[in-house]
Design a protein around this nucleic acid. Sequence first.
DNA 1: TTTTAGCACTCTTCTTAAAGAAGTGCTACT
DNA 2: AGTAGCACTTCTTTAAGAAGAGTGCTAAAA
Lengths: 332, 332
Amino acid sequence: MLSGRQEELLKLVIEEYIKSARPVGSKALCKKLKCSSATVRNEMMLLEELGYLEKTHISSGRIPSSSGYRYYVDNLLEPKEISGDDMLKLQTIFSNNNLVLSEAISKSLEIVSDITNYTSVVLGSASKDNNLMKVEVVPISQNKVIAIVITDKGIVENKQINLSESVDQNELSKTTELLNKMLVGTPISLVPSKLEFEIKPIISNYVKNYEVLYNAFYEALSDFTNEKEVRFTGKTNILKQPEFSTVDDVKNIISKFESKDIVSKIEETGNEVKVYIGENSEFDDNVAVIKTKYKTKANEGTIAIIGPKRMEYDRVLSMLEYIKKHIEEKYE
Amino acid sequence: MLSGRQEELLKLVIEEYIKSARPVGSKALCKKLKCSSATVRNEMMLLEELGYLEKTHISSGRIPSSSGYRYYVDNLLEPKEISGDDMLKLQTIFSNNNLVLSEAISKSLEIVSDITNYTSVVLGSASKDNNLMKVEVVPISQNKVIAIVITDKGIVENKQINLSESVDQNELSKTTELLNKMLVGTPISLVPSKLEFEIKPIISNYVKNYEVLYNAFYEALSDFTNEKEVRFTGKTNILKQPEFSTVDDVKNIISKFESKDIVSKIEETGNEVKVYIGENSEFDDNVAVIKTKYKTKANEGTIAIIGPKRMEYDRVLSMLEYIKKHIEEKYE
DNA sequence: TTTTAGCACTCTTCTTAAAGAAGTGCTACT
DNA sequence: AGTAGCACTTCTTTAAGAAGAGTGCTAAAA
């Protein structure tokens, strides 16, 4: 357990480092702690032994370690209200009634990204408790049809299908009718198995190209579950941070942004706004990720801010909380 | 006009520089030109005076200037057939009949990007000569409907609409019916004005929420014309090129990739495969862009490869030509 | 027992110098 | 016209020294 002064010191070091991005020396903190630099040094040694502070080299000032930040976020950060300025900017989004959910999310994260110079990510995903509302098959030429699937939450997916032979108009509408009759109201996740085991046996008798149609629907439906859209804003913002000052750092972080498994790395399951620091972020040792899941009736997904470990935690936390709350209220 | 030997020399310098990425000295070319380094130097001076070669400093070897590359591409590049290996890889795409246009394009450019280590861009855009095939309005809750627009080229757009008051089911289907009757077959570009001037007067009498519906359709339709999708592959590939060795170079090029007006910078109007070098590329002084427009019945757009000026022009040219040709044939 | 002053020490950063390499331009010769 | 030779320029690398920042430790003061 840290003493009051040690906590105070840790806090000062971190906040100073967040501002300046350079190691903090003992002298700089004398006045604020009302003691001499020697005393500060002694305390710093202790904090270093405990793993909260580090040195970049033997005679440098101190920088916070990942667990230093961790301690700071968990224990030292007073639950700060969102600042008036920041709130004002976000309000322009949530007071606009013409925006649909995805726009509101994108735009509000854009604001965060702009004013903080960090990078934001939205991981949109259609929630799995969509129910099928309507199926439509529209022929657009001799051997091309479009399968359209609409859910009760207002999500529309479509898939173009090339048929090997031309399909009879009648067969098509019969199929569609049947599909609608049997599928409307079914949770999307159950549709594929229903297609396979309940509908296929009935319909395969009198529709020649059933296989093809089946596949097309299968693909259109899999877009709901598989395809999680990732939207970045301000990918280059984070490069303005002084921690990315070498070519390799920059290349490294950029290629992480582009990497295929970004989804699994960003996706959040918890319901609170959480802070992941460094190694802990699963993303990159040199960044912190603040993220949360949002959940409305129609959708759920993750919103995240990626910044240097030396990040304005309180500010970002309060903004993300504000956004999450308003999204969930407004699009409930 | 350049002498035979001068052309030969220019070609050798460029090809050597493309391989090595370092200034080419006179000694390196003696054997190939069967003369002494002094002679090579004399010719080099001449080529420098003509603006085709440059020095990085007073006693360095030569590197090609933008107009050097230009001359090379326009006059020295024998129209090279695509190499067997490259062709083989691309054939896997075009022999697959399950791919729709946009997938085929993306995947083939992915291949180019992978094997060349340059960055590729696809600028997809629904062609304007889509005709409206079907309009659908699906209510999903009390005061939410989805407007769906389908064209004869198989493009589907949808827009969710929040209605201020709940809409009568009957009114909705009447409206939809009318819209279909009057709009089917209309070129997409003409739909808005038709909506405004022909349909509005008729319908506004007996549908309360006509304004809202109108706006929704308007927005769904504008997605066809406005929204040009930009898809990059291998954004980080180009960073492997040695010309991007300083932080600023990297940051600079990355932020160009992210910039808003990327569309206008990449979009190509010409029908051939064209090469833009350096300043000429409109994109960045340090890159070359090879691009062409593709055009099928349903779509048109631009495909482009962005690489260093020191790019394997012949290879990329032949691959892009191959891709363009096969796309246009296959999806004609 | 806690705090402080003082000092030697370490490591970084900046500047300068010197040595080596690469390659040119020019002159004079073939 | 082509070539050999050489002085010259510039870059790159390495080394060395000086200045600056900040530490850890010791011993004295509170």
